[in-house]
Design a protein around this nucleic acid. Sequence first.
DNA 1: AGCGCACTACGTACGCTGTACGTAACTAGG
DNA 2: CCTAGTTACGTACAGCGTACGTAGTGCGCT
Lengths: 234, 234
Amino acid sequence: MAGRAAVPEVIWSRPERTGRGPRPAYTRADIAAAAVRIADAEGLDAVTMRRVAAELGCGTMSLYNYVPRKEDLYELMMDAASGEHELWEPSGDWRADLIRVAHQTRALMHRHTWLPRLMSPVYGFSPNALRYLEHCLACLDPFEAPYGTKMELIAMVNGVVTTYVGNEIATVERTRSLPWSQEQENAVRIAYLGRQVASGAYPRLAASFAEDAGPIDLEGVFERALARVLDGFA
Amino acid sequence: MAGRAAVPEVIWSRPERTGRGPRPAYTRADIAAAAVRIADAEGLDAVTMRRVAAELGCGTMSLYNYVPRKEDLYELMMDAASGEHELWEPSGDWRADLIRVAHQTRALMHRHTWLPRLMSPVYGFSPNALRYLEHCLACLDPFEAPYGTKMELIAMVNGVVTTYVGNEIATVERTRSLPWSQEQENAVRIAYLGRQVASGAYPRLAASFAEDAGPIDLEGVFERALARVLDGFA
DNA sequence: AGCGCACTACGTACGCTGTACGTAACTAGG
DNA sequence: CCTAGTTACGTACAGCGTACGTAGTGCGCT
C-alpha cells in the first residue's frame, strides 16, 4: 500500500523531503526548471510527463513521486515564473509602482509565452505568488483604501495584463506547430473578414475598417488600457 | 484524392453545402447544439469527437466531413453561444447599454460555464460574433471617439467580464470531476493559506485576512469592476 | 439518359496522452 | 538490526485526435 492520497492536497503543503527512504534525485526547482525550459522552447503542449522526465533523465513514472498530478507540474511552473518577478522598495507613488509591476509582468509573459494560458486563481497560493501579492500590497501602502479594495485593484491590473498580453501572444503563437505560416493564416482570415464586411451587413464594422488603421501599436494599446484601469480607481 | 486542404481555412469561408453528393445528414447548427448540450451537462472536457458523434448518432469519422479539426468544433460552439446574445435598439445612453451588454454576457457565461475557457480573439470572426460586435458599436454611436477607441473599450469590457466570470466559475467548477467536494478542497487550501499567513512572512496579506471579510459578494465585485472600467474611459 | 466525379459515411489503425499498479532497491527511525 | 516508508521505474490501459482507405450516393454535364 503506497498510500496515495484520496483527499485533496496542495503540493506546497506536503514537505519536499520526509527523511525516510533514499535521497530524491531531483528537487522541485529542478523539475520546474526542466518544464519551463521545454515550454519556452517548444510550447506548453510539449510539456508532457514523459517529455519532462526525459529532460530530467529519469523514467516517466518516477516523476509521479514528486508531482502527484500533471496539474501540480503546472503549479511548479507557475511558481518558478512568479519567482522571476523583481521586487523593489516601494517608491511611495502607488500608481507608478503598479505600472512598473504591470510592465514587468508583461515582460515576464513575453519571456514565457505559456504564462497567460496557465494564469488562474488556482495557482495563486504558491510561495512566490504570495510573495508577489505581498509586494503589490506594499506598493499600495500609500493608497488609502480598505484591503478589499486594494485586492480588487490588484486583481484588475493582473487580469487586464493577462488578457492583453494573452491576446498579443495568441495571434502570434497559434500557428507555431501548424503547417502554414502566420502570414498565410492572417491573409485568409482578413480576406474572409473583408468579404463579410463588404456585404454591408455590418456598417459600423466597415467604417471601423475604413478608418485609417495603420499598423497596430500593441505597446500603446497596452499602455492606454492600463492607464484607464488605474484612472477608474482614482 | 479527397482533396483535404493543405492551406489554412476558416470554417465560415467554406460553404455548408456544395450541392454535389448525398445530402448531409446534419447541419452545422445540429452539430453545434449537440456539442453545447454535452459541454453544458458534462463539462468542456467531455466534448470529444467521439462523444459528439455519438450524441448526433453517427460514426466518429463522419464528423470530420463537417468539421475538419476539433478547433473548428469549438468555433461552432462559440458561434452558437454568441447567437444567444439578445440585441436591442440602443437607448442613446452608451454607458447604460454597455453595462446591459456586460450583464447579459455574464448571464450567458453562467449558462454555459465553458465559455470563458474558450474565449479567444481567434473566435471573433464567426457570423454571430460579428453581429454582436456590430451591436456593441451601435451602442457606442453616442460615444464621441474614433472607432479605434471604441474597439478598445469593447475589448476591455469583454476582457474584464471574461476574466471575472471565469474566476467566479473556475473556483466552483474545478472540482466537478474530482473525487472530493468543493468544500473539502477549499478547506485544505484555506488551512494551508492560513498557516503561511500566520508565519509572519506576509504582514499585509495577514492584515487583509484579518480585515472583517464576511462572505464575498461576487455580484458586487463584478459591478464595481465594470463601473471602474467605464469610468476610466470617461 | 446516363456517365463520372465530388461528396457523404464510417471502420480500422496509429501515435500520443495521463496515470494505475506492481516490483525491486534503499535508508532512516524504533 | 529490523522494518516501514520511500524512491525508482517498467508495463499496461483507456481514451484522445485524426490519417487513410473503401463503399455508396446523387448532382451536373454531356
